[in-house]
Computed example of a mutant assay.
Amino acid sequence: MTLAIIDTSTANIASVRFALERLGADPVIAATPDEARDADRLILPGVGAAGPAMARLEASGWADALRSETRPLLGLCLGMQLLFEGSDESDVDCLGLIPGRITRLDPGADGPWPHMGWNRLETVRDEPLMAGVDEGAHVYFVHGYHAAAGPHASVITNYGGPVTAIVRRGHAAGCQFHPERSGAVGARILQNFLEART
């Protein structure tokens, strides 16, 4: 099994790589699609804003490549949001792999904006990334925008209402939280992605 981390030039690439290396993986950091041609699966990390991240993906050729990709793909945090059709953050078109639009999170009475800290995972349907993870397990979130808990949300959390925590459509899945910063639970989720059947 070979794995490529898509180089989005964002701050969490190193921590994602280290988390994967702790699991025995040897990921390639791929600045262009050609650098990931031999990979069996792909991870799209991201922190920051949707507009600059999409601009980088467009400039590198990754945006077009991902729109026609069939290999297993896991988006992390902003990387998950980029899987959707568009984002109100920067009012930008995204990859369009999952229907829906990213909107500003309204935390209501649950806390400050942005959502930053540990929160519970609540399973709404079978999700391979959750194998061996108990419903109610806590993971670490940092985000001010979110995907509403629509038909492709396989796991939710609650922060001012239901928020997509894991989304899946076909070969593409995404975690709104940071598994690389979520201890043993996050490590298990990454391991499940590494071990998923292609």
Rank of each mutant, 00 (worst) to 15 (best):
Thr2Ala: 02
Thr2Leu: 07
Thr2Gln: 13
Thr2Phe: 00
Thr2Glu: 10
Thr2Ser: 11
Thr2Asp: 06
Leu3Ser: 03
Leu3Phe: 04
Leu3Cys: 02
Leu3Asn: 04
Ala4Gln: 03
Ala4Asp: 02
Ala4Lys: 06
Ile5Asp: 08
Ile5Trp: 10
Ile5Val: 15
Ile6Ser: 02
Ile6Leu: 00
Ile6Tyr: 04
Thr8Ser: 12
Ser9Gln: 15
Ser9Arg: 13
Ser9Asn: 13
Thr10Gly: 11
Ala11Asp: 12
Ala11Trp: 13
Asn12Gly: 01
Asn12Phe: 05
Asn12Arg: 07
Asn12Val: 01
Asn12Asp: 13
Ile13Glu: 14
Ile13Cys: 11
Ile13His: 12
Ile13Ala: 14
Ile13Gln: 14
Ile13Lys: 10
Ala14Cys: 07
Ser15Trp: 08
Ser15Asp: 08
Ser15Val: 08
Val16Ser: 13
Val16Tyr: 15
Val16Leu: 15
Arg17Met: 08
Arg17Ala: 08
Arg17Ile: 00
Arg17Asp: 08
Phe18Tyr: 15
Phe18Arg: 15
Phe18Met: 14
Phe18Ser: 14
Ala19Met: 07
Ala19Glu: 07
Glu21His: 06
Glu21Leu: 06
Glu21Arg: 08
Glu21Ala: 02
Arg22Ile: 02
Arg22Gly: 09
Leu23Ile: 03
Leu23Cys: 07
Leu23Asp: 02
Leu23Gln: 07
Gly24Lys: 01
Ala25Gly: 02
Ala25Pro: 04
Asp26Ser: 15
Asp26Arg: 15
Asp26Gly: 09
Asp26Asn: 13
Pro27Glu: 07
Pro27Ala: 06
Pro27Asp: 05
Val28Phe: 09
Val28Met: 10
Val28Asn: 04
Ile29Tyr: 04
Ile29Ala: 03
Ile29Glu: 02
Ile29Phe: 05
Ala30Lys: 05
Ala30Cys: 04
Ala30Asn: 04
Ala30Phe: 06
Ala30Tyr: 05
Ala31His: 01
Thr32Ala: 12
Thr32Tyr: 13
Thr32Gly: 10
Pro33Phe: 00
Pro33Leu: 00
Pro33Ala: 02
Pro33Thr: 01
Pro33Met: 03
Asp34Thr: 11
Asp34Ala: 15
Asp34His: 13
Asp34Val: 11
Glu35Cys: 00
Glu35Leu: 12
Glu35Gln: 14
Glu35Ile: 00
Glu35Met: 10
Ala36Thr: 05
Ala36Ser: 04
Ala36Met: 03
Ala36Gln: 04
Ala36His: 05
Arg37Val: 13
Arg37Asp: 14
Arg37Pro: 00
Ala39Ile: 03
Ala39Trp: 05
Asp40Cys: 01
Asp40Gly: 12
Asp40His: 11
Asp40Arg: 04
Asp40Leu: 00
Asp40Ser: 11
Arg41Ser: 07
Leu42Lys: 02
Leu42Ser: 08
Leu42Met: 07
Leu44Met: 10
Leu44Gly: 02
Pro45Val: 11
Gly46Ala: 00
Gly46Pro: 05
Val47Thr: 08
Val47Gly: 05
Val47Gln: 12
Gly48Tyr: 06
Gly48Thr: 08
Ala49Pro: 01
Ala49Asp: 09
Ala49Leu: 10
Ala50Lys: 04
Ala50Gly: 01
Ala50Arg: 00
Ala50Leu: 00
Gly51Gln: 04
Gly51Asp: 06
Gly51His: 06
Gly51Pro: 00
Pro52Ala: 09
Pro52Gly: 11
Pro52Trp: 09
Pro52Gln: 08
Pro52Met: 09
Ala53Thr: 09
Ala53Ile: 08
Ala53Ser: 13
Ala53Cys: 14
Ala53Gly: 11
Met54Val: 05
Met54Asp: 01
Met54Asn: 05
Ala55Tyr: 01
